[in-house]
Design a protein around this nucleic acid. Structure first.
Lengths: 230, 230
DNA sequence: TTGATTAATTGAACGGTGTTCTATTAAGTA
DNA sequence: TACTTAATAGAACACCGTTCAATTAATCAA
């Protein structure tokens, strides 16, 4: 027929990409599709939450693509989380969905989970240490991406960015000496003291450092773990 | 008189704690305060976003409390991020605000930033490496907490939790061997494959592991960094 | 104490929203 | 061609955030 679920989901992604997640509206989506709102509910078979879950699934679908299998487990983990970040960066305004909504986070590809668990098993993790290692990877790295892409105010008519920038620039040297000393270096480039997010300011080197630290840390602990393995 | 901003913010926190962030409503808040909606706007001097920012500020206010200063920089960092997690866990339903809204993230205490920067400076970080180290800590650890506390569907009348649990339990052994092999160990206890969040299931050991890995990793790199310091 | 100024509060109004329901049209099938 | 299933439409319900003019309450100066 002319309209199916895939088209609805794609139109939803487009709308979020353009107007942002906070401004998303089921009725507006129906309007741009030239259709009654009820049609969306009928095709999706659920409400907004479920449509969002579909959106998340589509965006992270490429996590299921194959990797070169001859790589070390470390390199495979690096690749898969770099890919995760890359995919989310293509739709930065969807990031809050993947990081801060369980229903959207849960649809993520089973292949992704399998890839990570396989790498960790190969590294020698088992039992509770496997569980913790997995959570460290997802929680730390996906969490980083979520924070990185936390959205600024949707409608900045009251000039929040400007005001906040000025507030940062005028941080008191007496009360906050360390902060003040490195202000030009950190202003708008570290979490908390910023008015633009990772879609406008690069956090590449910070992400790579975190990736290094986590993989190295797991490598170290995997060896210790390996003793109790066989 | 009798009504001021602090009371409004506290009532808002209470409402979010009880009904969840998605169900929060300015009108409902006004109703429970026995007051016209306009009163809230007048006292807050802004809209919902700004009220949320106040909520975030109140919840993270205790980050400004003093630490024992004779501790090593490593121990001070451990303390401050354990405290961050502790504070957010007292209001788990507010977590998406702190992790996934820049306006709420940005109000976070300047003392917090100063504490972290001071520790990292003492460790020997400077320049770009200081920036990256800071982002690794906030992005990785606060990001973890955000993911950990990602809310499940607000109104689970359609039984999502049940359905999802069953879907996880019946993961195919052929297609996902590693996942299937450790299913009892990971089911509802790792990100992605869960139907309850960190308010109901403990992620303590995973968080501690991530904390260890990051602090150790920074310690290692701080020494290398220290060469170019003096 | 009165009067004037400022602080708080109200209620109504505007322009939306998500979701569900019944009725209707279009498509496919026997 | 009849009948059944798939899609769509439109109205209705019960809200929502935000703003504004009008009003009451409190404060302060004379």
């Amino acid at each position: 027929m002319g309209l199916d679920k895939a088209q609805i989901v794609n139109a939803a992604i487009e709308q979020i990409d353009q107007r942002g997640l906070a401004a998303f509206s089921m009725r507006e989506l129906a309007r741009t599709l030239g259709v009654s709102p009820a049609v969306i509910y009928w095709h999706v078979g659920g409400r907004q939450e479920d449509l969002f879950a579909e959106v998340s699934a589509v965006i992270t679908a490429a996590l299921a693509d194959e990797f070169e299998p001859e790589q070390s487990w470390q390199e495979r983990l690096r690749s898969v989380f770099r890919r995760y970040r890359h995919l989310v960066h293509q739709h930065p305004k969807v990031a809050p969905l993947l990081g801060a909504q369980m229903k959207s986070n849960g649809v993520a590809n089973l292949v992704w989970v399998e890839t990570v668990l396989a790498a960790l098993a190969e590294a020698g993790f088992a039992g509770e240490s496997l569980r913790d290692a997995f959570n460290v990877l997802i929680g730390g790295l996906s969490g980083f991406v979520t924070m990185e892409l936390a959205p600024p105010p949707a409608d900045d008519s009251s000039g929040w960015q400007q005001t906040f920038a000025e507030r940062v620039e005028s941080i008191d040297a007496e009360s906050f000496p360390h902060t003040h000393a490195v202000l030009p270096l950190i202003s708008n480039r570290i979490f908390v003291l910023r008015w633009q997010n990772g879609a406008d300011v690069s956090y590449d080197s910070s992400f790579e450092l975190l990736l290094d630290i986590i993989i190295d840390g797991l490598t170290l602990r995997a060896q210790q773990q390996g003793v109790s393995r066989r």
